[in-house]
Amino acid sequence: MGRYRYDGSFEGYLSTLCLALAERDEAVEFVRDAPETEPGLFDGPAIAVVTGKGEAAAFRERFAAEVSPEAFSMLCYAFHSEREGIENLLWQYVRLGLQAGPRLCSMIADKRVNRVDRLARAVSREAHRYKGFVRFRELEEGFLYARIEPEAYIIRFLAPHFARRVGDRPWVIHDLRRSVAAVYDLAGWRLVHDITLTGSPRFTGAEEGWAGLWRSYFRRLAVEERRNPKLQQKLVPLRSRKYLVEFE
């Protein structure tokens, strides 16, 4: 049995898959690099995986060619659900895929594939919803700043969307749950880890004006005779309202 320690990133995970496949491992244990996962007294030694862009890309190409690009994208979305035990679930998925080939994607009624399919769709759905829910605020520091606290690690699916959309201003989307931010500087975007807020963000003078205008427009737009707060709550659950200026 192989025991692998990797850095917790998607690229790191793909590098690990490469290694485990090369070793022809069957049962595999994945350990994330984190202080709380220091090896216990009775754990065997873990092989430290070096995250390599080359390995990750090689795996991606192999999987897309032997199974399908769609299957790779399922793998990618499902990984970012950060569900407990996701590494092992996907390890089964990958091995099954390399056996079954292009049929894998139609095996959605199979338990093993079904669980991956469900997770992947939940993550992709959340990413889509957040394309609407991100709210940028204009900061004194001269950039647009948005806070989010999504269930899944969706920031890497959001960033390309906003890079295409708000291309004329620098912006930052900050996932407070994971202390990670996507930073756009007019040329491109990158992820920055271990971000902490040192104080509360300082909005520009104009910012409150625009937010206020939006808020009053938003309230005015509801048709009184059609009021249906229950439905509204179903569509915008309370937990996703935290950073929506119109609900402040």
Binding site: K131, A163, R164, G167, G188, E224, N228, Q232, K234
Partner: peptide, 23 residues
């Protein structure tokens, strides 16, 4: 969209919020 420009549209359409009447 493109760097330096504002805006893009997606095939699927995106909802940004829902009013008190659920629209």
């Amino acid at each position: 969209g493109a760097p330096g420009m504002v805006g893009s549209t997606g095939r699927g359409g995106i909802c940004h919020s829902w009013t008190a009447d659920g629209r």
